[in-house]
């Protein structure tokens, strides 16, 4: 937990370890709390790939995307907001149901079985 706000603004990428791989079930997600109160939804597709999105659903303002259903729409890997069911592209944060909306993405990497969330 070494992410500092000045590092973010400097564009440096810092990786925060959040959990073990097996703590994120396939086709599901967990929420991680980073410094500064930033919430990241760590989501995993059914073939094991990790993605990081802002945990906050832009349509409701609630921090819930980690609790959405993970699947695909037209071949695009998505998570559906549990509040009003809009789908978000796991790779880009783009909302499939409203092209004007895109949410923040966070890179994820796995090192020795530990999941790390990157902050730019």
């Amino acid at each position: 937990m070494t992410v500092l706000s000045d590092e973010q603004s400097a564009g440096a990428e810092t990786w925060t370890p959040v959990c073990r791989v097996d703590q994120v079930p396939l086709a599901a997600g967990v929420a991680a709390l980073l410094d500064g109160g930033v919430q990241v939804a760590v989501l995993r597709t059914d073939d094991g790939e990790f993605h990081g999105l802002s945990n906050i659903d832009p349509f409701s303002g609630a921090a819930v995307l980690a609790r959405g259903i993970v699947g695909d729409i037209g071949g695009v890997p998505v998570v559906a907001s549990p509040i009003y069911k809009q789908n978000f592209d796991l790779r880009t944060g783009r909302c499939l149901d409203d092209p004007d909306v895109r949410i923040a993405t966070y890179p994820i990497r796995v090192v020795d079985g530990t999941v790390h969330v990157g902050v730019r």
């Binding site: 925060t16 370890p17 959040v18 929420a31 709390l33 919430q39 303002g61 921090a63």
Partner: peptide, 12 residues
């Protein structure tokens, strides 16, 4: 609420 901070309150 948070996989890396069990018990931490959700600030939102």
């Amino acid at each position: 609420s948070f996989v890396n901070a069990p018990g931490a309150p959700d600030p939102t």
